[in-house]
Design a protein around this nucleic acid. Structure first.
Length: 581
RNA sequence: GCCUCCUUAGUUAAAUGGAUAUAACGGGCCCCUCCUAAGGGUCAGUUGUGGGUUCGAUUCCCGCAGGGGGUGCCA
């Protein structure tokens, strides 16, 4: 289902191509192959509604000046049965196309007809995408990075859905391996310290030192007392982990639910160990001769596999050599598989076993070294590494009163997601984290997020929606309720503020597709802010409650269009859509 | 050292290779007997640096400078 905007751009393209065809037939252009050209929306409205750069792009092919080519094209151009009423030559040779007045009316009709579905498209044709995000370690509380990842992942998933993909939201729980061993050890020592005081062992440098570990150990002690002190270490640690881990997972679940994130799957790493998929994955690598043993560990030939992948991408042997690729350990000397080994099995599970067409992971930028070898490893186990897309998020700095906030006042530790959600409205957190591209290092201004003013973009957008509701209510009180308008009535919307608004409204579907294609939900938050701005300008310039009944109805329709689009976007991002503020 | 991301107005950010680089905030001034002033209007101010590709570069390529991250039998 193509949008009006797409159709209009296609018409421009056809008009130019047809004119070129005529020019060739008439001998005005030599019969040479013509290169590609671009149809775009000019920055400056005075340069028409759409512009084509064909005359400039073809200057070399045709051995002629761009302006001359443009003149030849315009002279042979037909705009019958299109949305356009004229084409003008401007600047170095742009072909500027101007829409007929009723085009905007069609936009309004289209939006009103589609309602809550307006903006959705079939672009993704139902392809199955797995979006994995947050996936915080269950060994402790979540932090600011998880907050950004959560907002980004959930809203990206929403954008992909709107663009016609079948989306699956997933949380990967690292409930096995080294981190869990360390978690058990930390709990164990804190537990012993409760009873033995100075006689208990000290916490090693590289274990978990947070208050949350002490709390969990104390909770355990409250239930079991000192009965585990005399049990064997392994049994004691297992009991502590079995006690504390579900509590931590439940806490993450509760926090994320509060954050309005609903996962389709909470995937436990431990299942890969238990059901043999991890062993199977390693067996595949072994079978292909991509492993070897050294120093008592099992190694994966990353250098060979990744080198081959990079060579396919066009890197020269010298460039690859320069990267100093290293092989990776799959199974440690102590017999435990590495995180990397489990991760290969996990992604193989997504792509090969569960059959997702694409897997998207959202990782902190500190994991970037892991990206290339993960894709290579997927090639090695019989998947296509290109089906995995990894979005690297840069870190977040919190600021308050213009100062960088490093620590939480309460715990003295890094600010947790729990702290953040207690302090800041969820609407603001979800919106503000999606104001920047994932790859940008961002500052999160706590004062701004709390402030309920126009400076806060989320309130600015919500206010526009509330204002529309208020207008509708006010007019309804006077007996003036919206009715369906004819195309002629809607064509009355010709004020600059009105057409600017309609042009912007018309772009939603394509903006969502672009946002999905670039994995960048920030495009949509910016779109929403711009829409609110255009609406407020319209509000100040054009009175809805005016004497001309037809114009009033047309403006009411326009208000309903803006209301629909704002509501569709905010709802998509699970942000409150207020009727009044 | 090597890899990677980033650098646009005083600040935070926009700009599928296009025309006069766009907004917000901060500062000055103006607009409610009128549908929500949580709004609008208006004045001032910018592409780190040196090359290259192109009709045209904020955008692509190569140096340089500055900042973040990585370079574990951690995850």
């Amino acid at each position: 289902m193509s949008t009006l905007v797409k159709e209009a751009m296609q018409q421009v393209r056809c008009a130019v191509m047809d004119a070129a065809g005529v020019a060739v037939a008439e001998g005005a252009f030599p019969p040479v192959p013509l290169g590609d050209f671009i149809v775009e929306v000019p920055n400056n409205r005075e340069n028409g509604d759409y512009a084509a750069n064909a005359a400039m792009a073809w200057a070399r092919d045709l051995h002629n000046a761009p302006r001359r080519i443009a003149e030849a094209l315009v002279a042979r151009m037909s705009l019958e049965h299109t949305f356009f009423d004229r084409c003008e030559i401007a600047g170095p040779g742009f072909l500027n196309f101007y829409l007929r007045k009723d085009f905007y009316a069609r936009i309004a009709q289209d939006i009103l007809q589609k309602g809550a579905d307006y903006g959705r498209s079939g672009y993704g044709s139902g392809k199955k995408i797995n979006v994995e995000f947050v996936s915080a370690n269950p060994t402790g509380p979540m932090h600011m990075g998880n907050a950004r990842g959560g907002a980004l992942g959930d809203c990206l998933a929403a954008v992909l859905e709107a663009a016609g993909y079948s989306v699956h939201r997933e949380f990967y729980i690292n409930d096995a391996g080294n981190q869990i061993d360390k978690f058990g050890l930390s709990l164990d020592i804190r537990y012993q310290q409760l009873y033995l005081g100075k006689d208990a062992p000290d916490l090693p440098e590289d274990s978990y030192h947070g208050e949350d570990i002490k709390e969990r150990a104390a909770e355990f002690a409250a239930v079991y007392g000192d009965s585990y002190l005399t049990k064997p270490e392994a049994e004691r640690r297992k009991a502590l982990i079995d006690f504390a881990l579900p509590k931590n997972i439940e806490a993450m679940h509760a926090n994320l639910t509060k954050y309005r994130i609903e996962y389709d799957t909470w995937f436990h790493e431990s299942t890969l160990h238990e059901d043999g998929e991890l062993a199977e994955t390693i067996a595949i690598l072994k079978e292909k001769g991509l492993t070897y043993e050294q120093d008592g560990a099992l190694w994966y030939k990353n250098k060979e596999v990744l080198g081959a992948r990079l060579a396919r991408e066009g890197k020269t042997p010298a460039e690859i050599e320069n990267l100093q690729l290293k092989d990776e350990v799959l199974i440690r000397q102590n017999g435990n598989p590495t995180y990397f080994a489990a991760d290969i099995a996990y992604h193989r599970n997504k792509l090969q076993i569960r059959g997702f067409d694409r897997a998207i992971d959202i990782w902190g930028a500190d994991h970037h070294g892991h990206v290339a070898r993960m894709k290579g490893a997927l090639d090695a186990v019989g998947c296509d590494g290109d089906d995995l897309d990894i979005i690297l998020m840069q870190l977040v700095r919190l600021t308050r009163d213009g100062e960088v906030v490093r620590m939480s006042k309460r715990s003295g530790k890094a600010i947790t997601l729990t702290d953040l959600l207690e302090e800041i409205p969820i609407d603001a957190v979800r919106f503000l984290f999606n104001m920047r591209e994932p790859g940008s290092q961002m500052e999160f201004d706590l004062d701004l997020a709390i402030s309920q003013s126009a400076e806060n973009p989320v309130y600015y957008c919500q206010y526009a929606h509330a204002r529309i509701c208020s207008i509708l209510k006010k007019l309804a009180a006077e007996g003036k309720t919206p009715r369906a308008c004819t195309l002629e009535e809607l064509t009355l919307l010709q004020a600059e503020e009105e057409t600017a608004l309609l042009r912007h409204l018309a772009a939603l579907t394509d903006e969502i597709v672009l946002s999905a294609r670039n994995y960048d939900p920030a495009r949509i938050t910016r779109y929403a802010v711009e829409l609110a701005t255009l609406f407020h300008k319209f509000y100040n310039a054009c009175r809805v409650n005016c004497d001309d009944e037809a114009l009033m109805q047309a403006r009411l329709s326009l208000c309903l269009c803006v209301k629909t689009v704002l509501s569709n976007i905010l709802t998509m991002f699970r942000i409150t859509v207020p009727e009044s503020m």
